[in-house]
């Protein structure tokens, strides 16, 4: 197993380095010069030139790459653990990622927790009773939830629960603007409230996260249910399940065994969705004013903030590869044939 993990880690490292090199050079080929945005339109040619020097863009691209990797007298490089400073804010890219990544993780972890908790029993029930009400309801829900993208559901939920019914908070982020957030430890307000022993903040953050989590869960639950139901249905036709049925095992036991056989593909789907959501939650983040990694990525791309774009790519790809690695390990644990 150790060999298996090390091999996966090695491949992952090569992938991250390749991606980093590719992104570094590709963004510099885009037909826009970021300097103009930073100096503004009330600037002289001299100010522009000064800004270009300050951002290091006056140097040849290969030299820029060398500085990015190794640093120079004034700045640390990637090998020192520095991702550089954002050109929009002047703050280290790591500061922005430290601020935004936990917000995104908090949102998607809570959403997946709810989605998976709902999807597995519903999917299993649908598979074990194909003509039952649960299965029919699931089909309708799957069609309904998948019919529109998440930002559309977000708009509908804000209108319905906040504007019309007044039972949900406004799209003001993860906590009330008037509340001082807990001291950041993990960066996830729910977790940090628990660490600080602040029941009031815990309740408040759960309250403010309720609509974004509902929206994301609403969209995510559909495909997970479908995947669970399909895979449990397929596994129920396997020989060992049919044998169990023939010898009179209970429906509950059969369902449990079928679910175990169906776990692998379901885990794969969850992993893929999770990785996608790391950067793809941008619409939900915008919709609910959550300062997440998707928002930061979007702003960085629009502003041609090269260090920020490079930093985000490295972090998202590393996390994605980590998730895939964990999936591979889980699959290998479930199926020893894969360890070869």
């Amino acid at each position: 197993m150790t060999k298996f993990v090390l091999k996966r880690l090695g491949v992952g490292l090569i992938q991250i380095v390749s991606l980093m090199v590719l992104v570094f050079f590709l963004i510099r080929l885009l037909p826009a010069d970021p300097v103009a945005r930073f100096v503004g339109l009330n600037a002289s040619a001299e100010a522009y030139a000064q800004a270009e020097i300050a951002l290091g863009l006056d140097k040849p691209v290969l030299e820029q790459f060398k500085i990015y990797l190794l640093g120079d007298e004034q700045t640390d490089g990637l090998i020192h653990g520095s991702l550089g400073n954002s050109w929009i804010s002047g703050s280290p890219v790591l500061y922005h990622i430290g601020l935004t990544l936990p917000a995104t993780l908090e949102l998607i972890l809570l959403s997946f927790l709810i989605s998976v908790s709902l999807a597995i029993p519903i999917g299993v029930a649908g598979a074990t009773s194909p003509n039952g009400a649960v299965n029919k309801g699931t089909l309708i829900y799957g069609l309904f939830a998948g019919s529109q993208p998440e930002f559309s559901w977000g708009t509908i939920f804000i209108f319905l629960f906040f504007v019309v019914l007044g039972v949900a908070p406004g799209p003001l982020g993860r906590i009330s603007p008037l509340t001082e957030p807990p001291d950041p430890v993990s960066g996830m307000i729910v977790v940090d409230s628990l660490i600080a022993g602040r029941a009031d903040l815990l309740l408040e953050s759960l309250w403010y996260l309720s609509l974004p989590v509902l929206t994301l869960s609403f969209v995510l639950t559909g495909p997970i249910i479908k995947m669970v139901r399909e895979n449990v249905s397929q596994s129920m036709s396997l020989g060992f399940i049919q044998y169990g049925e023939a010898v009179g095992l209970s429906k509950k036991m059969l369902a449990s065994d079928s679910l175990l056989a169906a776990v692998a593909p379901t885990l794969t789907l969850i992993g893929i969705l999770f990785s996608f959501m790391l950067g793809g939650a941008v619409l939900i983040e915008s919709m609910f004013s959550i300062n997440g990694l998707g928002q930061f990525s979007l702003q960085s791309v629009l502003a041609m903030d090269y260090p920020a774009i490079q930093g985000v790519v490295i972090v998202i790809s590393s996390l994605t590869l980590l998730v895939y690695l964990l999936l591979d390990v889980a699959q290998a644990l479930l199926d020893p044939r894969l360890r070869a």
């Binding site: 708009t155 406004g170 799209p171 003001l172 603007p177 008037l178 919709m287």
Partner: peptide, 17 residues
């Protein structure tokens, strides 16, 4: 308290409420 709400439609509904 400056609160970032990037979508103008959201600033609108929050003001409205």
């Amino acid at each position: 308290v400056f609160k970032r709400v990037p979508l103008s439609s959201n600033r609108f509904v929050i003001m409205k409420m």
